[in-house]
């Protein structure tokens, strides 16, 4: 690998790794899977040996492809690993004292609202929350750049509707 590529890779990694992880984590609610996929995505980029024209969109696209495969594999592994209860495997990290029951309930409602959103709206909302540009979002989700604004407004409405619906119900 050439030194310029390695430098550019390191810079891109600094800029994108955390937000790619956060996007995937919010998307699936499984931090281990999100970490695996985010790392594997950067391994693919490293193996590529050159930077794509639109790195943000490339990373999202590759990550989503890996995510779909890994998600299927993970489900299969869970069935095999009967010795480890699923609840333990995916248990939350140890919580701080400040992590109260109220915030746990808030967390549950946000998670549920995300889970109940249509796939495209969820991805769009989460990508924008990580600051991806309309161009990156359009390319990654295979949309027209011109439709991103309207679809994003819709995604936010859908999220709030589902979230507030739970709040009303409780």
């Amino acid at each position: 690998m050439s030194r310029p590529f390695q430098d550019a890779f390191a810079e891109l990694f600094q800029e994108h790794f955390d937000r790619l992880f956060r996007y995937l984590d919010r998307l699936c609610g499984d931090p281990d899977l999100a970490a695996d996929v985010a790392q594997e995505t950067f391994v693919k980029l490293y193996e590529r040996g050159s930077l794509p024209d639109a790195p943000g969109a490339w990373l999202i696209t590759v990550a989503m492809n890996l995510f779909r495969n890994a998600h299927t594999t993970r489900e299969r592994r869970n069935r095999l690993l009967k010795v480890v209860p699923e609840a333990e495997m995916f248990a939350d990290r140890p919580v701080s004292p400040a992590h109260s029951a109220a915030s746990h309930e808030l967390q549950r409602r946000v998670r549920r609202a995300l889970n109940e959103m249509p796939e495209r709206e969820r991805q769009m909302l989460l990508l924008r929350a990580e600051g991806y540009s309309y161009k990156d979002i359009a390319e990654a989700l295979k949309l027209q750049d011109t439709s991103v604004g309207v679809l994003l407004a819709r995604a936010k409405r859908v999220f709030l509707a589902v979230y507030e619906d739970q709040s009303d119900a409780s």
């Binding site: 600094q14 955390d18 956060r22 919010r26 790392q39 967390q107």
Partner: peptide
């Protein structure tokens, strides 16, 4: 609200 479902990012070096 979205930040409530976040987990800490893994500590990985390029």
């Amino acid at each position: 609200l979205l930040a409530h479902v976040d987990h800490p990012a893994p500590r990985v070096d390029a």
